[in-house]
Computed example of a mutant assay.
Amino acid sequence: MPKHRYRSGDTIVLKSRVLGSIQPQGSGRIMSALPEAQGLVRYRVRFEHENFDRSISQDDIDTTASSPRTREPQGASPRDGTSSWINPNAIRTRK
């Protein structure tokens, strides 16, 4: 079973000529990891200068130009613990 090498927020670059003439320019950001399908690990990726997501196979990613972020150890948190993960300014209620 293949394992997801990248996670949400990682920046990737495709191998050259993977998508032929519709090859996106620049790097892409992983939006989410998709469930494994037919033995292939896939990701939802949004590339620079595009306003839509693409489904990209892990085999199509250039591993030398793309590197996954280092994962933080369990229990480590970038937050100081005083603020909540909920942003009260983003909550909208119906009137």
Rank of each mutant, 00 (worst) to 15 (best):
T63C: 06
G26V: 07
L34D: 10
P24V: 02
S77E: 11
R79P: 01
P73A: 14
V41W: 01
T64A: 13
V41A: 11
G39E: 01
R44E: 09
R54K: 11
D53A: 12
I12S: 04
D80M: 06
W85A: 15
G39V: 02
Q23V: 06
M31D: 06
D53T: 14
E48F: 02
P73F: 05
T63F: 12
I12G: 01
P73H: 07
S32M: 07
G39F: 02
S84N: 12
G81T: 04
T63M: 10
Q23K: 08
N51F: 01
I22W: 02
E72D: 08
D59C: 04
G39H: 10
R71C: 03
P88V: 04
T63E: 14
Q25M: 08
D59F: 09
L14P: 01
G20N: 01
E72K: 15
T82F: 09
L40F: 09
R29V: 15
I30K: 04
Q23D: 08
S67Y: 04
D53H: 10
H49L: 07
S84R: 11
Y43C: 07
I86K: 10
R17L: 06
E72F: 10
A76G: 02
R44T: 02
W85F: 08
Q38F: 08
N51C: 08
Q25A: 08
P73C: 06
W85E: 13
Q58C: 03
H49E: 13
V45F: 02
R54A: 00
I12E: 06
L14H: 07
S77M: 07
L34Y: 03
